[in-house]
Nucleic acid binder design. Structure first.
Length: 878
RNA sequence: GGGUAAUUAGCUCAGUUGGUUCAGAGCGCCGCCUUGACAGGGCGGAGGUCACUGGUUCGAAUCCAGUAUUACCCACCA
């Protein structure tokens, strides 16, 4: 009967690649504008040199679920894929690779280096996209974009020129975050602050012409050579008499003035601050206020400069130690204390970031951020979960100008050309030719040649291209009224990690409002962070991140998708455990075996009245489930929707429904029931398809013959009808009765072979009546009959308020039974007491909603009924 | 220093208009089952003062205040 060619265990490796290839071949993921409603998602572009990690899996599975469901709902679903050139990260990787070949970046020309970078990109870039295919991602690959491809780069430059002309981009000498490892400026967002243990050195500065010392506390003795003042709080009595005095800086011997500023925290250290404007952002501000010079004692790579005069060429961290011991030698180091404080590290290179005064390009944020703030505050863009709204608001209200220049080669080069030595001797233009023309005009020198122009060597921050992504992937800059941008923009949902809410999401909203007059997406779904079961963030450096491709090999993409999602509610971190994937794989296997059962049945013509009640029960429950899943997905409660389906399929469909209708061994199933069952299964496969695309597609084709082009991926999403609660309820009662019979058999060790008669103490028809044949079958009963009196000596149980007697021919242990009944009785009496009290309370009766009141009355009646039955039962026992 | 969230079974978490048929699920654990779809399974079971203290209310896991831990975000304390 069962066909041996269908294995007992589902093997995804035989299925997944085959279906993916089929979908691609059929072009199901392709999208072109038409008259359907669009549903668009743009992928957060992974780094072009990146490899798939568990965070991507979570993120992209969610996107795929949303896209696949929209596609089945008949929308024109488009998921745009692509990669990010990730300027600093990629450049670092290329430098590393070249170093391994014995080539130093400094030995190469810019052009040569860029050539290497492109080579790397072409060889390794896009690997991650192929990995996404293994996951089942239903992107329109024909639309794959790259942030460094010509049209996207053009968009970046156009925007730069535009914002420059609007006065929103400017060049200025500012304190910026400097990465001494990568030798580039960083934006504030690229600096990661970590609490570290440091030493606080108490250094003595001599007062000029006196035999008096002032002690200054500092964590950075290596910057002493850059000191230009010592600062006290004006109200600090300890130092009031130093006004107008001069101090001698140790080591350098420089004479610096004493100044006073309320910035000083009297409590900290000794209340004395050495002011080093070149190497501290606050000191810089104080220096400006007091018109002090800036003495930079570092080179770009963090070594001591000629200006320092001491330890020239040695790294600042080494010099810190040397300076301290030298001070000690000189008797100028009073003491050293431990100090815990936050130090900034470069996100990419992990180098300690140095504040550095430098000439950089900035984007003014004030005007751009205002409408982007409003969009989120007014829910034009919905953050899911909404708890991020406050953080977003706070950030946007305190946003500072964005440093967009990077001293790197890999990226869009800043379209500014210098024609003279002056600070303002430059032009910003879309091309060299335009720049030349403009420069000639500016200099009033028609003879100016290309060779007289020097383009700014810096490139733009990667995010200066990413922030345009939702527009540029639809060529919205080159063709502002093109069919794609008009149709697909604004996109529907953005799915991303909360850590780039400010980096990226906020800026995309700014760009959207500025360049399209419309926000780029309506909903932003913020996923959690994937952690290991010790709550550590999964990262390559920790080595605690499993390789998703290995997991797919072992558990199947479907299994991994389920495992990833089942434990991840929106915005909550997910503690990943491989067991979750095992659960997912087991679920796939369960579905597989449900199919094996159904397909193994021989079908006979006609119907079977016994199955009508179970079919009706399941049908109505199915409609209810479709409605619930729709509702949950509509609210982005994706994990809950999956759980709902998981238990509906496993428990209601497999454990109950299929057992209800399963024909006896060797018998055929009636055609009517079989037909219903196939249709139910089809609906379940549809509902599960967005979550588990592969196995559902496979079984969909096994379940019935399909025409060419008839695939689950493009099948219509199930609609639901109204359901009747009573139909559902009677099935639930039947389940309860069967469970209790099984329980009795198990507890009394009756075995499951022998059949016993069941009596129902009743005077009327009961809701489970239609399920009698089913109960008879699954309860292994020899018959069901109604009685009006207790059946002495029989085992009994209660379902709802109805008493059942199982005549198993064994005597019950009356004492144990009595105690059980007594316990139950007491619980019920307590319950009734509370309801009575509640219903006796005028304020409750007056204040409660009518339906609540009604429910309470029902509970009261039920409880009374049960108590009566239990009391009778107890009386019969004694 | 400021902000946001969390604290429910051994573990991970649901519990969305306050109603003692809400104290739940999954995993894990324990017992029984070589049952004809599935041992990647079936049936059953144990296990929680819902962090703590007050308050509001007829009634609180749910609302409010405070406390304690934890996590994350933001911030220029040398």
């Amino acid at each position: 009967m069962s066909q041996p060619e269908i294995p007992k265990q589902y093997d995804p490796s035989q299925v997944e690649d085959r279906w993916y290839a089929h979908w691609i071949e059929k072009g199901y993921f392709r999208s072109v504008p038409d008259d359907r409603e669009p549903f668009t998602i743009v992928i957060p572009p992974p780094n072009v040199t990146g490899v798939l990690h568990m965070g991507h899996i979570l993120n992209n599975t969610i996107q795929d679920i949303l896209i696949r469901r929209a596609r089945m709902q008949g929308k024109n679903a488009l998921w745009v894929a692509g990669t990010d050139h990730a300027s600093i990260a990629t450049e670092a990787k290329v430098v590393q690779k070249l170093r391994a070949q014995g080539i130093k970046k400094s030995d190469l020309s810019r052009e040569e280096f860029i050539r290497h970078a492109w080579e790397w990109t072409n060889n390794y870039g896009g690997i991650i996209l192929d990995q996404l295919k293994k996951l089942g991602a239903s992107c329109d690959w024909s639309r794959t974009r790259f942030t460094m491809e010509p049209s996207l780069s053009d968009a970046v430059l156009d925007v730069f020129v535009d914002l420059y002309e609007k006065g929103l981009i400017y060049r200025g000498l500012r304190m910026i975050n400097w990465d001494p490892e990568a030798l580039t400026a960083l934006s504030n967002e690229e600096v990661i602050y970590r609490e570290v243990s440091d030493k606080l050195y108490f250094v003595r500065y001599r007062v000029k012409d006196q035999d008096r010392f002032v002690t200054v506390a500092t964590t950075r003795p290596e910057t002493i050579m850059g000191d230009v003042a010592v600062c006290f709080h004006p109200n600090d009595p300890r130092y009031a008499d130093l006004k107008g005095k001069t101090l001698i800086v140790p080591l350098s011997g420089r004479e610096v003035p004493v100044i006073y500023d309320t910035y000083i925290d009297i409590e900290f250290g000794t209340g004395a601050l050495k002011v080093t404007p070149a190497h501290d952002i606050n000191d810089y501000e104080i220096g400006k206020k007091h018109s002090l010079p800036v003495i930079d004692v570092f080179n770009a790579d963090g070594t001591m400069s000629e200006t320092a005069g001491l330890w020239v060429g040695e790294d600042r961290m080494v010099v810190r130690v040397k300076a301290a011991s030298k001070l000690e030698e000189l008797g100028l180091l009073e003491k050293v204390e431990e100090l815990r404080h936050a130090v900034g590290f470069s996100e990419r290179t992990d180098a300690v970031v140095e504040p550095r005064l430098s000439l950089q390009w900035f984007m003014s944020m004030e005007r751009l951020s205002a409408p982007a703030l409003r969009a989120v505050v007014e829910d034009e863009v919905r953050l899911i979960p909404p708890k991020f709204k406050n953080a977003y608001r706070h950030w946007m209200e305190n946003i500072r100008d964005w440093c967009i220049s990077r001293q790197l080669w890999w990226g869009q080069r800043i379209p500014a050309w210098y024609f003279g030595p002056g600070e303002n001797d430059f032009v910003v233009a879309r091309s060299e030719a335009e720049a030349l023309e403009e420069a000639r005009r500016r200099t009033d020198n028609p003879g100016l040649g290309i060779e007289d122009l020097k383009q700014d060597p810096d490139v733009l921050d990667t995010w200066a291209s990413s922030w345009l992504w939702p527009i540029s992937v639809f060529d919205g800059f080159s063709e502002p009224n093109g069919p794609d941008i008009n149709y697909y923009y604004p996109t529907n949902v953005l799915v991303t990690a909360p850590e780039i809410l400010f980096f990226w999401v906020a800026r995309m909203i700014m760009a959207g409002v500025e360049y399209r007059g419309e926000v780029p997406f309506r909903d932003v779904y913020l996923t959690g962070i994937v952690r290991d079961n010790l709550r550590r963030k999964m990262s390559k450096s920790l080595g605690n991140s499993p390789d998703p491709l290995e997991i797919i090999k072992e558990y199947g993409a479907d299994g991994m998708r389920v495992g990833m999602l089942i434990a991840s509610s929106a915005g909550n971190d997910i503690l990943f455990d491989i067991r979750l994937c095992e659960q997912g794989r087991n679920f796939a296997n369960k579905i597989w075996n449900a199919f094996r059962l159904i397909q193994g049945w021989e079908v006979r013509p006609g119907g079977n009245p016994d199955n009508e009640a179970p079919v009706t029960w399941f049908e109505h429950k199915l409609h209810r489930t479709v409605s619930e899943v729709d509702h949950l997905l509509g609210e982005f409660r994706i994990s809950e929707a999956l759980k709902q389906l998981y238990s509906f399929l496993w428990d209601d469909f497999c454990s109950w429904y299929l057992e209800f209708i399963k024909p006896a061994y060797g018998e055929a199933i009636d055609e009517a029931t079989h037909g219903y069952t196939i249709r139910f299964f089809e609906v379940l496969l549809k509902l599960l398809h967005p979550f588990m695309p592969f196995i559902t597609e496979e079984l969909w084709h096994f379940l019935a013959p399909r025409k060419d082009g008839e695939d689950l991926t493009i099948a219509p999403w199930p609609a639901h009808r109204e359901w009747v609660d009573n139909y559902i309820e009677s099935g639930e009662i039947a389940k309860d009765i069967i469970s209790k019979i099984r329980d009795l058999r198990s507890k009394k060790q009756l075995g499951f072979k022998e059949e016993w008669p069941l009596c129902v103490k009743t005077t009327s028809m009961h809701p489970f009546h239609a399920f009698s044949p089913t109960i008879l079958k699954l309860g292994k009963l020899s018959g069901i009959s109604a009685v009006t009196e207790d059946v002495p000596g029989a085992l009994s149980f209660l379902s709802g308020t109805t008493r059942f007697f199982l005549e198993a021919g064994i005597s019950t242990n009356t004492e144990a039974e009595r105690q059980k009944l007594q316990g139950e009785l007491e619980r019920l009496r307590g319950f009734l007491f509370s309801i009575d009290k509640k219903l006796g309370n005028e304020r409750f009766v007056a204040g409660a909603a009518p339906d609540v009141l009604e429910r309470e009355k029902q509970k009261q009646a039920d409880a009374r009924e049960k108590i009566k039955i239990l009391e009778e039962q107890l009386a019969a026992l004694s």
